[in-house]
Amino acid sequence: MDAFEAALGGDPVALDPWLATGERPQAGLWVYRNTTAKARADALAALYPTVERLVGRDWFRDAALIFGGDQPPESPVMDAFGAGFPDWLERFPPAGGFSYLAPAARLDAAWSEAHRAIDAPVVVAADVTGQPPARLFGATARLHPSARLFWFDWTVPSIWLANRPDAEPGQTVIWDEKPEGLIILRPRMEVTSRRLTRAEWAFLDACRCGQSLGQAASAAFRVDPATVLPTLFAGLLGAGVFTAIDMEPSQ
């Protein structure tokens, strides 16, 4: 089996003692090598469909082959394979000229994580109607376990949204140094993504760090003094961003 692993890895003579001589036996080894490479590339393509669409199928297959050699799967659960792909892409020289690739891969990874994340309840507007504002300000809002927050200095979310498998074709997207935010989550059975304003991002980032809604509101005002708090909060509730709101015990 040591010899077989070496042969799969590309060592042409490792398996010689076990094989009949001739070209045809070596062809059989290629079947195993191809199957392994294809299974890895298929798994990676399923996890990173936007990256595949951005670079094209052939480029992606070639990169997947090299990545699979650098970071082979450790488990038969292929969802776990490729977790290191965004970081790897960042250091992969042929991707050097495409600085949106690694960030787009991070968004793809977040989509897959949200898809298989644990199911959890969603707080809706009716759950908080009638709560005195002072009480809400002292409460903490827990983000849905599927939620992943992103803030970029460049237009990564626009590029990603326009190149998802279900995106409308033919959109023109400009790669520009313009800040954009995005949240990816699965409040119920469907993964959704929603652009975030800077105030929304600051608000959610504070919630993610365990700060109170009052502190989160201050964070939102700091980045955008024109924030209309009820509108911001209602928008996030409508998107299903929170799984629970923990009220402080009444004094």
Binding site: F4, E5, L8, Y32, T35, A43, P72, P73, S75
Partner: peptide, 17 residues
């Protein structure tokens, strides 16, 4: 068949003597 050895998983069903 075999597919896992040590920390490496080969996504294939491999032969053995």
């Amino acid at each position: 068949a075999w597919s896992a050895r040590g920390d490496v998983y080969h996504p294939d069903l491999l032969p053995f003597p």
